[in-house]
């Protein structure tokens, strides 16, 4: 039907337009939407796929042990305490490290495991995301930064660990622990009163 010439021309024209069509918009995670799925290796070399936790509550925590904000929440016992509390209720708590090799917070798996132990962490796994793919997929800006995913894989909370973006340990007394609040409300079948908050802390040390 088509003469070779017009076929070629049309194909050319179409191929010129394809890059435009494929230039998909940058997406960011949305409360109420499915949480982006990913597969990342943990510090023991096992691949962990988010979808394997279908049917379970999942907390994602962006982690950099050398970030002083993370330090505030670990040395005070705030985050380890929450990990322990919610793990007892069957929640899977995954820490993700998106620090690029050579930047703060990046450690070889063995060192990371030693740190995880020494920090008193109770996470189920520390996942390694050295090229920052998953971090960028989740728009992770800071450490700590938190996400709560329900058993259907829907994102229910994203933002800070609490609502008081300071370095002071004493502020923990007055801060509202937003992840804890969201999980408590969700398990009680209630709406999350604060589903989105400002993530605060150190910047995620993405590869530059």
């Amino acid at each position: 039907m088509l003469s070779p010439r017009s076929t070629g021309a049309l194909a050319l024209a179409a191929s010129l337009l394809v890059p435009v069509a494929l230039d998909a918009q940058e997406t960011s995670p949305e409360i109420g939407d499915a949480a982006p799925t990913f597969t990342l290796p943990d510090t023991y070399g096992t691949d962990v796929d988010l979808s394997q936790f279908s049917g379970e509550w999942v907390v994602l925590e962006w982690l950099n042990y050398d970030c002083p904000y993370v330090g505030k929440h670990y040395s005070s016992g705030n985050i380890p305490g929450q990990q322990e509390k919610w793990k007892a209720q069957g929640v899977k708590w995954l820490a993700i490290v998106s620090s690029a090799p050579g930047t703060q917070g990046y450690f070889e798996p063995d060192v990371m495991n030693a740190r995880t132990a020494s920090e008193g962490s109770n996470v189920d796994a520390v996942l390694l995301d050295p090229d920052g793919t998953v971090g960028k997929m989740y728009d992770a800006q800071t450490t700590p930064q938190m996400f709560v995913i329900d058993p259907d894989g829907i994102l229910r909370y994203m933002g800070g660990i609490d609502d008081t973006p300071t370095s002071r340990v004493e502020d923990l007394e007055t801060a509202t622990q937003l992840v804890d609040q969201a999980l408590t409300e969700l398990m009680a079948g209630q709406e999350v009163s604060v589903p989105v908050s400002r993530p605060y802390g150190c910047s995620v040390k993405y590869a530059r």
Partner: peptide, 17 residues
């Protein structure tokens, strides 16, 4: 430092300072 901290049970969060 991590090793030392482990040994003496020092909260390693302090390493940020």
């Amino acid at each position: 430092f991590g090793a030392v901290a482990l040994l003496i049970g020092l909260p390693a969060g302090l390493t940020a300072q």
